[in-house]
Design a protein around this nucleic acid. Structure first.
Lengths: 115, 115
DNA sequence: ATTTGACATACGAAAAAACATATATATGAT
DNA sequence: ATCATATATATGTTTTTTCGTATGTCAAAT
């Protein structure tokens, strides 16, 4: 992973927020991201495909859902970029996650974030 | 400084290499960057202007030269991102700096990098 | 087998970013 | 004052990226 490629991937609001949300939650499926970011499904899918093809994210199919997670094999500097940005910008991702909690029909694991 | 704005600024080869070179050298003037990156002066100037307007870089005029440095007031996560990316990608910036050493007419301080 | 819901991809249009070139400013030297 | 050098900006064009919409695929349920 080249730094330029990595920064280009994070230089889009949808991709940046997806990566930060996934880094915070560990794993999220497409419909959760679609709801949290309030975007259309094809738009989310298209951006996730870019992150998957460049190996920033890994995907895992579980039944009808596809869950995305940060690729643990990313170089340290890349993981540190994500971690530091997330830790010091929690105000950015928290309001996005909260919208997930008003989701009606959703994968069961999403319920964990809604106390 | 918003994370999205920061990553957009680093998502261009000229700006990324400029920032990494400046982070490594402490301070560089426009003509040094022009030589190191082998690009036209207006192109370098235009990208430095973006980094200056967004407060990623500070500039200092000394005679006919303008020196750019990383803004020490950047948020920690931004400075850490630059530092970690630089430290773990030295192979990326070293060949760029070496080209500076074959520069004929240049500010005296640039000589320091040419043993 | 058909339907339904979740997700992926394809394609042309629209928006954004980067570029080359010309020109302007500012400093120092003659 | 003129000239040379370093740097900045402006403008029109080209390239890159993003987008909306339509369509395709896959898994589970009926």
């Amino acid at each position: 992973m080249q730094p330029l490629e990595f920064f280009k991937l994070l230089a889009d609001e949808t991709r940046l927020h997806s990566v930060l949300l996934i880094a915070q939650e560990g794993e999220l499926c497409v419909c959760e991201l679609t709801t949290a970011l309030n975007e259309t499904q094809p738009k989310i899918s298209r951006h996730l495909a870019m992150l998957r093809k460049s190996q920033v994210l890994l995907d895992r199919r579980q039944g009808q859902w596809v869950f995305y997670r940060i690729n643990p094999a990313l170089p340290d500097w890349a993981k540190q970029n994500i971690t530091h940005t997330l830790e010091q910008n929690t105000a950015l991702v928290q309001p996005l996650m909260s919208s997930l909690c008003s989701m009606g029909d959703r994968p069961e694991r999403a319920a964990a974030c809604c106390p």
